[in-house]
Design a protein around this nucleic acid. Structure first.
Lengths: 245, 245
DNA sequence: CGGGACTTTGACTTCGTTCAACCATAGTGG
DNA sequence: CCACTATGGTTGAACGAAGTCAAAGTCCCG
């Protein structure tokens, strides 16, 4: 993390929509505050009005919603480099919560600053729009996953997605990566119980698709895993991203 | 429909983010083509590159995704006044399909025209962003619905959502509205089989929450229905919309 | 080295699915 | 005007995938 945090943000948005030198300068000039947050300390709380946007510099976070009887549904997983609260940039009330899964390092920018830069720089607004379009595409795929796939397929699909997204940021190649989520959390992401997630993981291990050691995953057969997961990465719209340069 | 189609579009976006006279004029000047499409003729096909954005002037449409074994998940329901393809404005490949449920009347605008206006008019871009933010919030709620609620709750929740959204456009009050979806489609929207949807509908009727005649629904007890549905309309972000005037 | 959080396993239950038959309604062509 | 057909809705019985409950087992951290 030798780079300035706002450089990371500028680069991220630049990959979504080509930014001018001026656009990038505006982003870099935004005030930001580095924070480390621990699991249990939410970044955004459902029904509150968020006052800042955070960029996830390190660690793992989840977006979640709760039903009135306390059941949790995880609606997205956020990895290093993801923007954590562009979702609420123009909404008064947060419709879901964001919380760390591991200790996270974030750069917090006042919402007003992001709005100001976005409104004065069409390319920035456009990049934020595209970021949201991709996030929305991912939640539609999750809807298909949870609504129409079997338990086995669901967990395999989640593993495929995380492996693919992590491999972009070079934190993992497709053959080994760290996913520090508990089986309880994996269940809340897939609409299953933790007990059943466990059975499906062991099942995927038994058939030789993956192997695990603690939270370290290893893909033993990408082709078999994607086949059982019905995984097609088109919904991630990775082609949309310009190469990191 | 005495109004010009692009006036409807301008008004819609104006309710999401205050537009200037100039912004609205730009929208009105976009070329558009009225079309009537019948069920079975999709507006957008997954994996294609959409060349236009459509505004739904009348009728009912759905967004859907298919798993490789042919199962369908409906990921959104589009009502009169909804924009049908702002989702793909800046994405090369459609990640889901859009198809009519009833005959629909749409106004199609070339994608390039929408992009051009949006890029020259920050408020328009902002309105499009907000539209997408709200759509994304709805799919997160659907994820909670499908992932964590019982069959009864799911169908009750869907009915609450449609009733609420329809009541905004004054097509329905909360006590009676037309929802021309088959039980098969309701199942694909809730992650259930049509047979079970039927049982749940009859169940909701039996307890006196709703009544039906063909596809005409009537809410007999809004409080009971919302209670069984665990329905809280906050996720629709209706407060975000400026009044129609 | 003791305690708490997480994982694993087994036995049993349940919610929703599947399969299959039957009914209702609307549209069609003779 | 009425059979004929198609599509969608309704119901029941049997089945099965995933949930629930409970008890061990494992790992980490203080």
């Amino acid at each position: 993390m030798t780079e300035q945090p706002m450089d990371v943000f500028a680069d991220k948005l630049d990959r979504l929509a080509r930014l001018s030198v001026d656009d990038k300068a505006a982003i870099r000039s935004m005030p930001c505050q580095l924070k480390t947050l621990l699991p249990g300390i939410p970044l955004v709380v459902e029904r509150n009005t968020p006052q800042s946007c955070a960029l996830l510099l390190d660690g793992l976070a989840i977006r979640s919603k709760y039903s009135s009887d306390g059941a949790r549904q995880i609606v997205a997983i956020q990895l290093r480099g993801d923007a954590l609260d562009l979702q609420h940039l123009y909404l008064e009330e947060a419709d879901h919560s964001v919380e760390p899964v591991t200790p996270v390092l974030v750069a917090e920018v006042p919402r007003s600053a992001v709005r100001h830069v976005a409104e004065g720089h069409p390319n920035v607004m456009k990049a934020i729009l595209i970021d949201n379009l991709i996030e929305a595409s991912i939640s539609r795929e999750w809807l298909l996953n949870v609504g129409r796939r079997s338990a086995r397929e669901r967990v395999a699909h989640l593993i495929c997605e995380v492996a693919t997204r992590l491999s972009e940021t070079a934190i993992a190649d497709k053959h080994g990566f760290h996913l520090p989520m508990t089986q309880d959390q994996l269940g809340d992401a897939t609409g299953l119980t933790p007990v059943h997630v466990n059975r499906m993981l062991r099942n995927l291990e038994a058939e030789g698709s993956i192997s695990r050691m603690r939270h370290q995953f290893r893909i033993e057969s990408w082709s078999r895993l994607t086949a059982t997961a019905d995984f097609d990465p088109a919904y991630l719209h990775r082609d949309q991203l310009r190469a990191i340069g």
